[in-house]
Amino acid sequence: MSDAALDFADSRRALLGFTGRLVGFTLLATLMFIWLGPVLLVVLTSVKSNNDFLAGPFALPTHLTFEPYLKVWFALGFGPLMANSFLYATAGSALAVILALVPAFTLSRLDVPGKKVIFGIILTGLMLPQQTVIIPLYDTLRSLNLLDTRLGLIVVHAAYGMPAQILILRGFMTTIPRDIEKAAYLEGASDLQVFWRVILPLSIPGILVGFTLNFIAIWKEFVFGLVLLNSEANFPVTVGMLKLNSDRYMSVFNLPAAGLVIAQIPIVILFILTYRRISEGNFAGATKG
């Protein structure tokens, strides 16, 4: 996985010369304009006063104001929304990881007959469009009195997070050298001991990656939150933010812009803390049988 794997371009770079570098920087500028531009524009809009906003979308603010943040925070009730999303993302991901640990261990380290079939069945949960299960989930949660409850949504998130966690953790556990546990088995250790003493401690980086990805996924999630909850007190950020698309907020853009920034801050923090780990091919574990 090292970057050196494809250093076929290293010797080429010298030959690239001026034209090559010009092409490179033009592409870079285009990509930045398209992908960074909108984000920066929203951040810029969020610190503008109403008057500055009317001066045009690209006009720099005459002074920075954080008033839009305060206004939108209280108008939309971001406090409870963020608390809810934080609860769903933390509890849902933790449960998903816990549910996935032993299956990942079993399917990566033990010779289960029919391993591929079992793994395949579990993974279908990953590909299922949520809309195909939303009516039964709604009805089932209602009959269990879990509709419109935080617990109900956490359970659903945990169950649908589990397959991805098994995929990630299994991929991670496969990379742990066999010799380590062989020694343990030879000394008469049980599966439980090998799992608990050997594999689990070595899997902590994988667990962190899995947890982070699941946290982000639940923070972003919308369909389950929309359908399985009714009362605003239980809404996650995504569902609460729908209100921003209304005349009340859309007359001056600094309020919705500030709301967008607020909703993204927890993810940005998490992203900064874990970006290297996540970006370096852990997603791609899926592509390695």
Binding site: V102, F105, I122, T124
Partner: peptide, 22 residues
């Protein structure tokens, strides 16, 4: 233990949250 928690449990979760709803 590996069979119960590593094979049966995830298949039950699958059955409850994917199989049954479908």
């Amino acid at each position: 233990l590996a069979t119960i928690f590593g094979v049966v449990m995830p298949l039950v979760v699958f059955a409850v949250f994917v199989g049954y709803p479908i």
